[in-house]
Computed example of a mutant assay.
Amino acid sequence: MPVPTAGEVLRLWFEEVWNQCDASRIEVHMAPAGIARAVDETGADAHGPAAFRAFFERFLDSFSDIRFTMHEVVEAGPLAAGRWTARLTHSGPGLGVPPTGRSLELSGMAMVRVEDGKIVEGWNEWNRMALATGLGLLVAPAR
């Protein structure tokens, strides 16, 4: 079986890990020493699959109906970048916030560096302000 390209790994990551909510796929797609930069709600890094899994499980404890849509993926050798939108419902206290039942839409971009078919480094930029205002932690200024 051929080794997947960086773009294929990025798409598989969002489909299998996030859309299928399958934590077992984290180790399949992330190298043992892989780093996910600025991944969580605070902008902290996750070093290795176990650290990413801890964030992932907290996220799943907070949100249901998670659905990521990958809009575009651009590849250049071992690098791939993609723009995404996520729709989810705040249904649990996993992030330390009582569930609101609110539906949220978040947008962001991810870039990965892949070696031997696994993510060795990933960079994440997503709209944390939309998360905070959607959970009622911040009030959006009047327009």
Rank of each mutant, 00 (worst) to 15 (best):
A44N: 06
D65Q: 15
R58D: 10
G48K: 04
P49M: 04
A50Y: 01
A51N: 01
R58V: 06
S62T: 13
F68T: 04
G48N: 06
A50K: 03
A33H: 15
A46L: 09
S62L: 11
S64M: 08
A36W: 07
A54E: 12
A36V: 04
R58K: 10
A38L: 05
R58W: 05
F68H: 04
A38P: 02
G48C: 04
V39M: 05
L60I: 11
A54D: 12
G34N: 05
A51D: 06
F63G: 00
F55P: 05
G34Y: 00
I35D: 07
T69Q: 09
R58T: 10
A46D: 07
A46W: 11
D61M: 12
G43P: 02
A44Y: 02
T42D: 07
G43E: 01
E41W: 13
A38F: 11
P49R: 00
I35T: 12
F55I: 10
A50G: 01
L60F: 08
R67A: 14
R37N: 12
R58Y: 09
G43R: 05
A46Y: 09
A50P: 00
A54L: 07
D61A: 15
A33S: 15
F52S: 03
H47R: 14
R58L: 08
D40T: 04
F56T: 03
D45M: 02
A33D: 15
A33M: 15
R58P: 01
A46N: 04
